[in-house]
């Protein structure tokens, strides 16, 4: 039964893929879909191949990924640290909470021009934008992870005379891990958004730059191709991350 269903799902996925891509290509060939506006799979494939041979798409993807992943790593490190500090401290946490939430409700891509003004159009502006998108949600989730700890577990630790650091490392921190993981998963796409938006504002390289340049020449194929590359990369990253976290969080009641 269960196996049958998962086979059905796999088949369905394949059918969907073939129908969408095939329909798109067919529409483009028969003229139903104007390739000027939406390109076509074959045009995209050719464009991708040319770009690959010229080592363009690889270079620009590399630039964007560097910006995004650096922002993600820094944002995660700072976010987790801040979240832990806020969660553990009984004064700082509650005091800073409203400010952090106010900051978080600000659409941070709107900060982009300001950031570019501060640090210029190089790597730093994209890194900082990715960082700013990532840090707050990770911090809030970490904080929530500490606040959500079952008080009975802390009582149990007090009964066995655990020191504060033992309570932290054996109870509070492990309790945060699922919260941090779910924040990280969302943060992957946030970081990429940050990098791309930064490149839109002004850049000399990166996927955002490629798209921006192509749009200047009304080159829809040139705009869509990097998008696809980005989508596939982000998707792969997400899969990888989910697989890793499933292994790590095997103890969870509701494994995802």
């Amino acid at each position: 039964m269960e196996q049958d269903r998962s086979r059905q799902v796999a088949l369905m996925k394949l059918v969907l893929l073939v129908v969408v891509i095939g329909g798109w290509e067919l529409g483009a060939r028969t003229g139903v879909i104007p390739t000027f506006w939406t390109s076509s799979p074959s045009l995209l494939a050719i464009n991708f191949w040319e770009s690959l041979k010229a080592n363009e798409i690889t270079y620009h993807t590399w630039v964007t990924m560097q910006e995004a992943l650096a922002g993600l790593a820094a944002g995660a490190a700072v976010g987790i640290l801040l979240g832990l500090v806020l969660g553990v401290s009984r004064v700082f946490g509650p005091a800073l909470e409203p400010f952090v939430i106010a900051l978080n409700s600000l659409p941070r891509v709107a900060l982009a021009p300001l950031i570019v003004m501060f640090v210029g159009i190089g790597f730093a502006s994209k890194f900082l934008l990715a960082f700013s998108l990532v840090v707050v949600p990770i911090m809030l989730n970490t904080y929530e992870g500490i606040k959500s700890v079952d008080p009975q577990l802390v009582n149990m630790m007090r009964i066995i005379h655990a020191r504060r650091d033992q309570v932290f490392f054996k109870v509070l921190l492990p309790n945060c891990v699922p919260w941090i993981f779910s924040a990280l998963r969302v943060a992957i796409s946030f970081a990429i958004i940050g990098a791309i938006v930064g490149e839109f504002i002004s850049a000399r390289a990166g996927i955002g730059y490629m798209i921006d340049t192509a749009s200047g020449g009304f080159d829809t194929t040139g705009m869509i191709m990097p998008l696809f590359v980005l989508m596939i990369l982000a998707f792969a990253l997400d899969r990888l991350f989910v697989a890793a976290s499933d292994r790590l969080l095997i103890w969870r009641e509701d494994a995802r």
Binding site: D150, Q152, L153, V171
Partner: peptide
């Protein structure tokens, strides 16, 4: 002192 709680208070991430 030992304390057995009504809820088991086990750490879910530990075997």
């Amino acid at each position: 002192i030992g304390y057995v709680f009504q809820q088991h208070a086990l750490l879910p991430w530990r075997p």
